[in-house]
Simulated scan of single mutants.
Amino acid sequence: MHHHGYLWTGSKQRFDDEALRRPPHPDPPPADKPELFARYKEVKAEFPTVDLPPLETAHWLIKPATLVRGTWEEPKEAAEWLGQRLAECAPRFACETDRDSTRLALLVHSAAERLGWGGDVSHGFYLERPAFLSVALVTCSPNRAAPDLACPAVRI
């Protein structure tokens, strides 16, 4: 078991495009609804490659390996990476409460515990402008929530 780190920062408007943040339904809509069918084809083609954070954390594993920002065998090391990313971005957090160093330390501690039993970690923060930060740690080989998903590092 190991853990992959993912980081995304972008406009809130782009983040809010939920259709591109979920895998398409296995069954396409009827062909007699051209607008729906066209959108389905777009999502089917783009979801696996778009850098947007997926709605389900485990679905990061579907994304290209180039989006992996780090890989760790030990939960503590992965959680430390999370802590470093949060500390770097904290001055830009839109909510003052989110900047609290004690709160951030608790998130890091909680992340190490969750990764230790094979869970995933995902946090999101609104930043100034309005922008959004998504940071995730995904347990791999296997993932508890989606054990059938292959490790993206194998596909490199």
Rank of each mutant, 00 (worst) to 15 (best):
H2E: 08
H4E: 02
Y6T: 05
L7I: 12
K12L: 14
D17W: 04
D17F: 05
E18S: 05
A19P: 00
P26E: 12
P26N: 10
P26F: 09
P28L: 11
P28D: 11
P29D: 09
A31V: 13
P34G: 07
E35V: 13
E35Y: 01
F37R: 14
K41A: 13
E42F: 00
K44A: 14
K44T: 12
A45F: 03
E46T: 01
E46I: 03
F47E: 10
T49K: 14
T49V: 13
L52R: 07
P53D: 06
P53L: 03
P54C: 01
P54R: 02
A58R: 02
W60I: 03
L61Y: 06
L61G: 00
I62M: 10
K63V: 04
T66E: 11
R69M: 10
R69V: 02
T71I: 01
W72D: 07
P75T: 03
P75A: 05
K76C: 00
K76I: 09
K76W: 00
A78I: 03
A78N: 06
A79D: 05
G83W: 03
G83S: 09
Q84G: 06
L86R: 08
L86P: 08
A87W: 00
A87Q: 14
P91L: 08
R92L: 12
R92G: 03
F93K: 14
A94L: 15
C95W: 10
E96C: 01
T97Q: 13
R99P: 08
T102G: 11
T102R: 13
T102N: 13
R103I: 02
R103D: 11
R103H: 14
L104K: 09
L104W: 02
A105M: 05
L106K: 13
L107G: 09
V108A: 10
S110N: 15
A111I: 03
A112Q: 06
E113D: 07
E113M: 07
R114Y: 04
R114F: 05
R114W: 00
L115V: 11
L115A: 09
L115P: 05
G118H: 12
G124D: 12
G124S: 15
G124N: 14
E128H: 08
R129T: 09
R129L: 11
P130Q: 12
P130H: 11
F132H: 15
F132D: 02
V135Q: 11
V138R: 10
S141H: 13
S141E: 15
S141K: 13
S141I: 00
N143T: 12
R144I: 09
A146I: 08
P147V: 14
P147N: 12
D148G: 15
L149F: 09
P152N: 12
A153E: 15
I156P: 03
